[in-house]
Nucleic acid binder design. Structure first.
Ligand SMILES: NC(=O)c1ccc[n+]([C@@H]2O[C@H](COP(=O)([O-])OP(=O)(O)OC[C@H]3O[C@@H](n4cnc5c(N)ncnc54)[C@H](O)[C@@H]3O)[C@@H](O)[C@H]2O)c1
Ligand SMILES: NC(=O)c1ccc[n+]([C@@H]2O[C@H](COP(=O)([O-])OP(=O)(O)OC[C@H]3O[C@@H](n4cnc5c(N)ncnc54)[C@H](O)[C@@H]3O)[C@@H](O)[C@H]2O)c1
Lengths: 215, 215
DNA sequence: AATAAGTCGTGATATTTTTCACATATTCAC
DNA sequence: GTGAATATGTGAAAAATATCACGACTTATT
């Protein structure tokens, strides 16, 4: 699809740029330089210019970038005009937090339904999202292609298999399990315990005198 | 401190290895190869061997790695024997989920106290962790060096400043705000909305026929 | 109109990370 | 013991990412 020449590292930063540009526009700013952007999002200004340059010459020398133009460009690039439906599996501590938080501020994704194995949770609605019993997964999932996994790790493999066979193509996996999927399914692991441990490890073992911010 | 020759990419994977080795030991396995590890944690086996090699020759050719030895080694390396205290700021949706989840399974970090601006939350205890009013931050924080930030983005800068002046050295920031800190403070951003958007972007724009798993 | 200040886009370079591929060592089966 | 199988550790190469530094162009100022 189109140019898949865009480096992954760049692609991961696009939503960040987009969000900040939105803020700028709301503040009524009409122009912005890579230097200003850099200070706000904490990414080197050369990296920002390089990132933008993959999409062509979006700025003007000596001027910077026009906020509205850039925003419009990224809106298209990030498909901000089409809403992507997401399913959430596991309405426990984390899952409930995600349901209550509305990802649809500034955002093109929306959790449209949730599943849980607990019969007490099925039938309810949390944050405006209906919760179904996991037994009804195949029946209710419909054409949703993205799932958030917030179930116990022990359930991850079994549920993943069911999700994949129903056509899910992207999984945001919060369980510590490293799930196996076919090659055409993308899994993004967010392992909170590990993030915390890694932070502590860095604190103890790395001097850190220079500014190095870690994602 | 010791060898800070260990690449950051490697350091981030250490807790993952550690957790899996723990599982292996609990299953009674005594040896493991980089190939087996690779399948379990979804990291290329050459990368695993390279990672381990930064710490010396931990394995044996033709045999693999001794689980107990490796685990003991990483336990020391990751300071699993000392518990690091953590403060949580913002007992809302996310914060409450973290308090209820006990990070101290297999883990060397523990949330020991929490703060919130809501007077109804202060004074309570959630998941065994006392919640104080944010006004008492300076008084109660003590010698804690790591904080988890789960407050509204608008509060992030102000609270960060207070944390830093009280001596916090590591922040796990869940707010969308990109906070500014002195060079000796490490910030790790976990931006859930962006993770979700990035996943959707990859799904739509990247072919993905080969196995590429993204962290 | 000329000058100064600001800023992009990018070739070149540096750094970081991953992967290949193989000499070398060990184990295991018989 | 011997040979086949297994698996490490690592030099070298590749790939990915980040940064430097500067020519080219814009805007603002006097
Ligand atoms: N909460 C945290 O702070 C935190 C931190 C790090 C990792 N995690 C991980 O995130 C995951 C969820 O954590 P949590 O604290 O929300 O757990 P939780 O126990 O509160 O919630 C899990 C939910 O999944 C449901 N469930 C169980 N089996 C199911 C199945 N087969 N199908 C559908 N639903 C099922 C349960 O009924 C429960 O509601 C876990 O894997 C956990 O390790 C959580
Ligand atoms: N919940 C999610 O799923 C989710 C997803 C992505 C990002 N986030 C981000 O995480 C952060 C927290 O999200 P949430 O859903 O838990 O929000 P929330 O509103 O449920 O919780 C925020 C809590 O912080 C407290 N608070 C406000 N100001 C404070 C202050 N100055 N000092 C101390 N406490 C204060 C509030 O009383 C509240 O309890 C937000 O920045 C949000 O953007 C949350």
């Amino acid at each position: 699809m189109e140019q898949n020449k865009i480096p992954q590292a760049t692609a991961k930063r696009l939503p960040l740029y987009y969000r900040f540009l939105n803020n700028l526009q709301m503040q009524g700013k009409t122009r912005v330089s890579s230097k200003e952007l850099s200070e706000a999002v904490k990414v080197d200004s050369a990296t920002i210019r390089r990132d933008f340059s993959y999409f062509g010459a979006l700025g003007k020398k000596g001027y910077g970038y026009n906020v509205e133009y850039l925003l419009g460009f990224f809106r298209k690039t990030l498909d901000q005009d089409e809403l992507t439906d997401v399913a959430l599996i596991g309405v426990g501590n984390l899952g409930t937090a995600f349901l209550n938080y509305n990802f649809t501020k500034n955002n093109n994704t929306k959790i449209v339904l949730a599943f849980d194995a607990d019969p007490n949770k099925a039938g309810k609605e949390i944050g405006g999202v209906p919760v179904y019993h996991i037994d009804d997964l195949e029946e209710k999932l419909g054409n949703v292609k993205v799932a958030i996994l917030t179930i116990p790790a022990t359930e991850a493999d079994r549920i993943t298999e069911r999700l994949v066979s129903k056509g899910i193509k992207g999984i945001l996996n919060f369980t510590p399990a490293r799930i196996s999927v076919p090659d055409d399914v993308r899994v993004h692991h967010i392992d909170l315990a590990i993030e915390l441990q890694a932070l502590v490890y860095f604190l103890k073992h790395y001097p850190l005198d220079t500014k190095e911010e870690v994602l």
